[in-house]
């Protein structure tokens, strides 16, 4: 690929009408506009023009672009969930993951490449961590896939640094006053994965069963794994 030192998108476009939507567990996400609404933005036109020129000039091939899109599409939060479940069940793996995320992921045949470094940060009863990129939308894509639209929204990026507890409450996470909230603004070459707290009552569970509790948002820090509704469904 060409110059590709940052695995982020530039979320500089405006934001259209606001339409909050409730989720099944009752929280409200920051507003976001529909991606395919209205005419192409200037940035979308620019992207298409540059991509077409790169292919016409033989700098990259359409196959290479398609292969990269396929790689990104193959990375989903379920991959991260497997990692978290392994860390919950294997203390040795957990300590290796916290010490050297890239090497630990290779043990699971997950190659996160060399575009950015990864760090894993553990949530505990003392500290709740949450990740943002206020400058654009840096995100551990090669482990969790494409970030959700709200992660790139101006509302999330600007508000979570100023009022993290308020934003977390909107996501349904109420952090006790005795627990420190620590916001990680991923401003540079590192990407952050949150290792959420393992829910009580999951002792003896298999990694497969545990991984079903680990949603994308729990690895961003905007949710905590919940046992109740999952257990009730079994």
């Amino acid at each position: 690929m060409m110059h590709d030192d940052h695995d982020h998108d530039h979320a500089g476009d405006g934001h259209g009408h606001h339409h909050d939507h409730s989720h099944e567990h009752g929280h409200v996400h920051p507003p976001q506009k529909d991606h395919d609404a209205g005419p192409m933005s200037a940035y979308e036109v620019l992207e298409e023009a540059v991509r077409t020129l790169l292919v016409e000039k033989g700098i990259v091939t359409a196959d290479e672009i398609a292969a990269q899109i396929d790689l990104m599409d193959s990375r989903t939060p379920s991959l991260g969930a497997k990692v978290v479940a392994r860390a919950w069940n294997d203390p040795g793996f957990k300590s290796r993951l916290l010490a050297d995320t890239k090497s630990a992921l290779l043990e699971m045949d997950i190659d996160i490449g060399t575009l950015a470094e990864f760090r894993t940060i553990e949530n505990t009863s003392d500290t709740h961590n949450v990740v943002v990129c206020t400058l654009c939308s840096c995100y551990p894509k090669l482990l969790l896939g494409v970030p959700p639209a709200w992660y790139k929204s101006l509302a999330y990026r600007s508000r979570v640094v100023v009022d993290p507890r308020g934003v977390l409450a909107e996501f349904g996470v109420r952090v006790p006053a005795g627990t420190e909230v620590r916001v990680h603004d991923s401003t540079a070459d590192l990407r952050y994965l949150i290792l959420p707290v393992r829910p009580a009552g999951t002792e003896g569970w298999s990694e497969d069963r545990l991984s079903a509790l680990v949603t994308r948002d729990t690895m961003i820090g905007t949710a905590v794994p919940e046992l109740e509704h999952k257990a009730a469904a079994e």
Partner: peptide, 22 residues
Amino acid sequence: LQSDLWPGYHGPATDHLEADIY
């Protein structure tokens, strides 16, 4: 410290923010 960044920060005095700076 969040309270150093934002006057009138709502949360506890132990809340922090971290960033990577050159």
